[in-house]
Design a binder for these strands. Sequence first.
DNA 1: GCAGTTACATTTTACAAATTTTGTTATTTT
DNA 2: AAAATAACAAAATTTGTAAAATGTAACTGC
Lengths: 200, 200
Amino acid sequence: MSTPREPSEMRILSVAGEHLRQHGLRRFTVVAVAEEAGMTHANVYRYFPSRTALIDAVVDVWLKSAERKLADIADGPDPAEDKLERLILALAKANRDLLHEEPHLFAALSQAVAKRHAISRRNRTRVRALFERVIDDGIATGAFEPRDRDRAIAFVIDATHRFIHPASLELEADVPQESVDTRLATLIRVALRTLATGVI
Amino acid sequence: MSTPREPSEMRILSVAGEHLRQHGLRRFTVVAVAEEAGMTHANVYRYFPSRTALIDAVVDVWLKSAERKLADIADGPDPAEDKLERLILALAKANRDLLHEEPHLFAALSQAVAKRHAISRRNRTRVRALFERVIDDGIATGAFEPRDRDRAIAFVIDATHRFIHPASLELEADVPQESVDTRLATLIRVALRTLATGVI
DNA sequence: GCAGTTACATTTTACAAATTTTGTTATTTT
DNA sequence: AAAATAACAAAATTTGTAAAATGTAACTGC
């Protein structure tokens, strides 16, 4: 899955991560990263084809780490209903926490999503696959009985969009967490009930 | 409700509308609008306190026109279910059509919403009130039976957010209309069913 | 031949000066 | 008195240019 990285590459990636988190996209320069990594900037280009690719690599580390947590939930032994609920909650929480705790990194992710970079498209595909897996799981065990499986998947993703997509999360940055949590809980309850009762 | 406007004010507003639609926010200048309206820019300030206020006035004309259509639906004699469905569809369509047919005006609206200008906050309040009215109507006639009215209203707005909010619509600009329509139809069906069956 | 540098062309960014636009006030016009 | 302008300060934008950063290629040392 992920390519094993050489020590220099790891060092660059780690320094780049610090720089991005501390200084943000605007002030992030390959020259500064290279200097702090103890090399000239030209050498950075031996490992990363461009500044954008380096930034994307940093974001990708975070995305992959978030994905692993989601995969753990999706692959767990629990009932599909529980897993779907936890999947949605974990995804919403991961993104929302990033927004508040690492705003610069969040901004980089947000831009990668907005500009449809490969890392974000692939992440989207994989996360969607997790949703599909859990919903298929629920269908297999009889917990979910949608008439149209694909439509059911699209429904869950569309309905929770507001609490998951970076562009939507930014809009609610100042809304009290508690209120958001309540509303999301309502939405999840409806989604689960809908999947269970074959309305779709 | 809306202040009757003087002829000069109307002329400025109309020229400003053309300029905004044709040239976009960036190239929109009070000087150019004034020139085309046959006056000096200082005179524009007799009617509009600032460039931003003038732009907002243009956007507000569109918002008010959209609101009137929505109010017609909400105040109609039809069953609350039908009205709620048509309200959501009309709102989604109005915004989506604006995105495709008047991209510059859409961008101005988008910015007014993002920056929480008074016109957009008030529009949001009024549109929300229409939703409340229709849902209350449905509760009164027994068509809807939510356990918690406020939660039900929030649910409908959150669930349809993806198809209504400018920031979300921009993300899907290139998705085929047909696909979007299908997904929105699914969401509306679920929302109506949910309101009807007291899950919330 | 791999990890790195040096040297250099190209592209961005940063900054200062000039210009334009914004917004205000005093004045003119009707 | 209402509608408009002229004149002006403050703010924003544009323009041109120096500096810095990005990206490439040829070269060095291990």
